[in-house]
Simulated assay, not measured.
Amino acid sequence: MSGGPSWNVLKGRKDGGVSKANETINLPAPTFNVSQLIQSFAKRGLGVKDLVALSGGHTLEFSHCSSFESWLRNFSSVHDVDPTMNNEFAQKLRNKCPKPNRDTTAGELFYSTSSTFDNNYYKQLVAGKGVFGSDQALFSDYRTRWIVESFAKDQSVFFKEFAGSMVNLGNVGLIEDGEVRLNCRAVN
């Protein structure tokens, strides 16, 4: 409903019978650096371009303060705020997430076009306005920076790569003893 790329979903994938919250503990953390992100994706058979393309899904996200506060205050012994972050943007986030923060719902829409699937996420990274440290790290590291720049420059390139990476992601963790669901919302 918000536009964006499309792709053919492979049919016949087997789904498990249960979904467990504790299985999400192996997802990449918002504090990961690029080496940790690359390693996390590689464990699942996904490459560097998949990492950068799938991160673009954050263009539609909202995040609570607790997910990004670590790089707004006491970032290191030398810097209070992550030096790769745009100073004005950092101050805006600090104002939204004061210490102590009594508003547990406080947070930030990732990007100004958060209701539209577009390449604005990458444009914001180029401007030093990534919400997560792991997002901004994609622009700071030579292994991923060129991909971020190409996606920021050309939305159609991002859409093409995102669609391909979604197909790749759909092949991660195939289940041998699951079932092909007749109704995707319920087990058979």
Rank of each mutant, 00 (worst) to 15 (best):
M1I: 00
M1W: 12
G4D: 09
V9L: 13
L10I: 06
K11W: 07
G12N: 01
R13K: 10
R13C: 06
K14W: 07
K14N: 04
D15L: 01
G16Q: 03
G16H: 02
G17Q: 01
V18K: 03
A21N: 03
N22F: 15
E23H: 04
T24N: 14
T24G: 09
I25K: 11
N26Q: 06
N26V: 13
N26I: 13
P30T: 15
T31N: 12
N33D: 15
V34R: 07
S35G: 11
S35I: 10
Q36D: 11
Q36N: 01
L37I: 08
I38A: 07
S40A: 15
F41C: 04
K43H: 14
V52T: 09
V52W: 10
V52Q: 07
V52C: 03
A53W: 13
S55L: 08
G56P: 06
T59W: 00
T59M: 04
L60K: 04
L60N: 10
E61Y: 11
E61D: 15
F62S: 07
F62C: 00
F62P: 04
S63D: 15
S67E: 15
F68K: 05
L72A: 10
N74A: 10
F75V: 04
V81P: 07
V81G: 03
T84W: 13
T84G: 14
M85C: 06
N86S: 10
N87C: 04
N87K: 14
E88H: 09
Q91L: 14
R94M: 09
N95D: 14
K96T: 11
C97V: 02
P98S: 01
K99P: 03
P100A: 08
N101E: 12
R102M: 12
D103A: 09
D103L: 06
D103G: 09
T105H: 10
T105P: 01
A106F: 13
E108G: 03
L109W: 15
L109P: 00
L109H: 15
F110G: 07
S114W: 15
S115R: 14
S115P: 01
D118L: 02
D118P: 02
N119D: 12
N120C: 04
L125Y: 14
L125K: 02
V126M: 02
V126K: 02
A127M: 07
G128R: 06
G128T: 10
K129L: 12
V131D: 05
G133N: 05
S134K: 03
D135T: 11
A137L: 01
F139C: 01
F139L: 08
F139P: 03
D141G: 00
D141P: 02
R145I: 01
E149S: 09
F151K: 02
K153A: 13
D154G: 02
D154R: 00
D154A: 08
Q155A: 13
Q155M: 04
S156K: 13
V157I: 09
V157N: 03
F158A: 11
E161I: 08
A163G: 06
A163F: 10
M166K: 03
M166G: 03
M166D: 08
M166V: 11
V167N: 01
L169R: 00
L169Q: 04
G170F: 12
N171R: 05
N171E: 13
V172Y: 13
V172T: 14
G173R: 00
E179G: 05
V180E: 10
R181M: 00
L182I: 01
N183A: 05
N183Q: 07
C184S: 08
A186C: 05
